[in-house]
Design a protein around this nucleic acid. Structure first.
Length: 296
DNA sequence: CCACAGGCCTGCAGGC
DNA sequence: TGCCTGCAGGCCTGTG
């Protein structure tokens, strides 16, 4: 579920409820997720105000009023839901409620009771997610963040930046784009989608897109553009993770209907003028969907 | 029973 | 020797 667009959707859904509110209590229901919860987790959060809700790559960050940041990663199956909010702001937030609500509470692992009456519940069946506390100051130097690469939507990702990152790399484009140290926030779905849009083979060596004769290659420019546009479109659609608990207005979580390659094995390639079929192959133990006819 | 699933880390082996 | 790379396995549970 959670690649960059999904985490951003979560952030936008939670922000109206959490920012400006105070955490009254934390209901921590087990000692660990992927990693142990921080020491004295509930004590350290109780009474704290939430100043801001931010995102870096696939991390969600709640800035607290004591200078700490609650760092949250959703892993493969993490989701939040909002309960018990009744005012107008909350109605809007409910509409944005990220990743829907699970059918039962069996995998509710932590819940934050807020001063505005809302309860924000974290659910994660596979428990690949985690939560940590870090200092806001120097967060970029924190072990979780210091190695992260370019944030795709902040304006720094263009053909020249990609060409520079790919210089000398013999690894495949698929692996390079999944590497969070180069570009941060892409996962299996959006890598497949971006490569398809750019007309580039997932098996092609990343270094072949490096600079040539003083400038970025056309492929690097196309790829940077494809990454930005697919992420922007997915964010605008509320991500791809909201198959369940669809809102009546249908404005969120519909990007899975716009996939051109991911999960479409055997389907006709949607590229105009291409008569290929979408294929599925394994790369690094994960499925890659691509069209051999138009992705070179 | 099996394969597979949106993330990410480690260890290991091979190539240069 | 070092560095890069690909790959398997592990963490967990759910679904087809």
């Amino acid at each position: 579920m959670p690649e960059l667009p999904e985490v951003e959707t979560v952030r936008r859904g939670l922000a109206p409820v959490m920012v400006g509110a105070r955490i009254l209590a934390v209901d921590q229901r087990r000692p660990n997720l992927r990693f142990p919860f921080p020491e004295r987790f509930t004590e350290r959060l109780s009474g704290r105000g939430v100043v801001a809700l931010r995102r870096r790559a696939k991390y969600l960050l709640a800035d607290l009023d004591d200078g700490a940041a609650l760092v949250m990663h959703l892993g493969m199956s993490g989701s939040f839901r909002i309960e018990g909010h009744v005012d107008a702001l909350n109605a809007e937030a409910q509409k944005l409620a990220p990743c829907g609500a699970p059918k039962d509470a069996a995998h509710d692992h932590a819940a934050f009771s807020l001063s505005n009456g809302a309860r924000v519940v974290y659910n994660d069946p596979r428990r690949f997610g985690f939560m940590q506390l870090a200092a806001q100051a120097g967060l970029d130097a924190h072990p979780l963040f210091r190695g992260l690469g370019l944030e795709p939507l902040d304006g720094a990702l263009d053909g020249a930046a990609l060409a520079r990152l790919f210089t000398g790399k013999s690894t495949s484009l698929k692996a390079a784009l999944l590497d969070q140290r180069l570009v941060a926030g892409l996962g299996n779905i959006y890598v497949c989608e971006a490569l398809h849009r750019a007309g580039l083979s997932p098996r092609r060596a990343a270094g072949t897109l490096a600079r040539q004769s003083g400038g970025p290659t056309a492929g690097a420019r196309r790829l940077a553009e494809a990454i930005r546009t697919v992420l922007e479109e997915a964010v605008a659609a509320g991500g791809s993770s909201l198959r369940d608990h669809r809102q009546a207005d249908g404005s969120l979580g519909y990007f899975q209907h716009s996939f051109r390659a991911y999960g479409r094995e055997g389907a006709p390639c949607p590229t105009p003028g291409c008569d290929g079929l979408i294929r599925r192959a394994a790369q690094g133990g994960r499925s890659t969907f691509y069209c051999a006819a138009c992705q070179k």
